[in-house]
Design a binder for these strands. Structure first.
Lengths: 204, 204
DNA sequence: ATTATCTATAGATCTATAGATAATGC
DNA sequence: ATTATCTATAGATCTATAGATAATGC
């Protein structure tokens, strides 16, 4: 790990890297220590248990991910432009740290109890944002500008399209036989492609 | 586990259930044995190592998943109808065993070496099917019936939309605050919704 | 003095195997 | 006789902690 920082930070970074790569269960505190450049006991000195260390990381990543999706845009923009911005900024967030989604889905799946902690941490904010987005959407539907659709369907579509290219990369490459260069191009055009797909699907 | 079958089969079923739920690393042979109703040594008697047992299951699930996507439809149908059938049958396959996608993405992510075994097992078939689908697609583009798009983008869109509703369920429920009844409805209408999204995105 | 780091180890897994015993097939 | 199942255990982890030593702050 990078020197000159303190060891506590180095441990956190190593743990983040390893947990994101291999998940909670497959990562040992011994491995984290080795990667950070200290001995295994020090991991416990700073974070007491593997679980507490994990939770700190899990929470940070979760907040980042949810935050990228759940944010209110108060600009006075036409609905379609606001939506486009929302799709694009979510895509950019996933691109910034592409291992997050699979990591989160995984850890939630193998330990659903983490959802409870989460619910507490996030509070009511997400639901409020959903309500806000719903009212904007419903207004547009009432005006006849877009077809009738629920906010849940729309958000799920956004997330599906924006995330999958990162989650599926290794498998998709193997199955499709796509070349590496071509896959890179695909990933790059995917942001615009996703916007196009979603907007065209909303036409009345 | 269900009686009257032989123990070898019961072990395979227990292992399948547990591996799909918790992944390779977090599942122990002791646990598999307990679930199957025998002692831990018997798991090794039949399958020698945990890894061999896992690989048998991994390969089966992988074949099922890839097979649901990669199949040639030789019916003489208009392109759009063929595509619709492809989307719907893929969706139905995922619905049949919804834990498969996350399981596969995960295990590939935490052990990319499994991809190599896979490449060998699958052979050239997937690439051939991609080529076949590509020629059908290009023909339709040339006729001006749909906009220009690569087969890779199209397939990725199909997979993204069809899979995510199953992978994201727990997290999506927590974040959105959607009720359980409403989520069930969402899941049910998702097949048609996905077809609609994809077809409308192809319009020239 | 306090904080950071290390060595050593207890106790809990977990996988794989050896060797005993029970069940089954001829 | 062969196959299925069990008990017992070796050897390899892995987490967490106790207690020693080194580094730092006053």
């Amino acid at each position: 790990m990078s020197d000159e920082q303190n060891m506590e930070q180095a441990i956190l970074e190593s743990a983040t890297k390893l947990f994101l790569e291999k998940g909670f269960k497959a990562t040992s505190t011994t491995e984290i220590a080795k990667e950070a450049g200290c001995n295994q006991a020090l991991v416990h000195y700073y974070y007491r248990t593997k679980d507490r260390l994990f939770e700190a990381i899990f929470e940070k990543k979760m907040k980042f991910f949810v935050g990228s999706l759940i944010q209110i845009n108060r600009e006075e923009l036409p609905f379609i432009e606001k939506l486009t911005k929302r799709i694009e900024s979510h895509f950019d967030a996933v691109l910034e740290d592409p291992k997050i989604p699979l990591f989160l889905f995984n850890e939630i799946n193998s330990n659903p109890a983490r959802l409870e902690q989460l619910r507490a941490k996030l509070g009511e904010l997400p639901q409020e944002v959903f309500l806000q987005m719903k009212s904007e959407l419903d207004e547009e539907i009432a005006l006849g500008n877009i077809r009738s659709i629920t906010i849940f369907d729309l958000m799920l579509t956004i997330v599906s399209l924006n995330i999958m290219v990162f989650i599926a990369e290794p498998m998709f490459k193997t199955i499709s036989g796509i070349s590496n260069e071509e896959f890179i191009k695909l990933r790059e055009r995917r942001k615009k492609e996703n916007v196009h797909i979603i907007l065209s699907s909303l036409k009345p």
